Amino acid sequence: MRQYCLCLFIGLLAVAFLQSGVLANNANSPDECCFKYYARKIPIAKITSYMETRMDCAKAGIILVTQKSLRICVNPELSWVKSAIKMIDDRDF
């Protein structure tokens, strides 16, 4: 009986270690992805910074950060978004 309890304990301990490894893999999931884009143009003067979404997001996107710290997803293929990125990059240098 004692040996059975020891085997059961070791088995449960192994399962706990395996499960914690699976949970740790979820830590690599994208923090921020764009699932839909904001449709209207945002004035460049109101944008303070931007970031690109990670490669493992289903949809490519640009996250614009406004003066009020709003984070807005926009389509990176739009011409006004490309212009905004260029102006922000030029402004930072």
Rank of each mutant, 00 (worst) to 15 (best):
P43T: 05
N25A: 07
S49D: 10
K41V: 15
K36Y: 04
L8Q: 13
E77Y: 00
E52W: 08
W80P: 03
A14C: 13
G21M: 07
A60G: 00
E32Q: 11
D56H: 12
N25P: 00
S49I: 00
Y4K: 15
N26D: 10
F93L: 08
L18S: 11
I42D: 01
M55K: 15
E32G: 07
I63H: 06
I88N: 08
K59Y: 10
V65Q: 11
Y37T: 07
A16K: 01
G11L: 14
Y4S: 14
A16E: 07
A27I: 11
D92R: 02
I47S: 03
V81G: 05
Q67F: 02
K41R: 15
I72P: 07
N28S: 11
L8A: 15
S20W: 07
D31M: 03
C7T: 15
A84R: 00
M1R: 14
G21E: 04
L13G: 09
M51Q: 08
T66G: 03
K82V: 03
I44S: 12
K41N: 12
L18F: 09
A16D: 01
T66H: 07
K41I: 14
D56S: 10
E77V: 01
A27D: 10
S79F: 07
G61R: 00
V15P: 05
P30N: 01
S29G: 02
L23D: 06
Q67N: 12
P43E: 05
R91Q: 12
F93G: 09
I88S: 09
I63W: 01
R91Y: 13
C5M: 13
E77M: 03
G21A: 03
K86V: 01
R71C: 02
M51F: 00
C33N: 11
V22F: 09
A58R: 09
Y4I: 15
N26Y: 11
P76Q: 10
L12A: 07
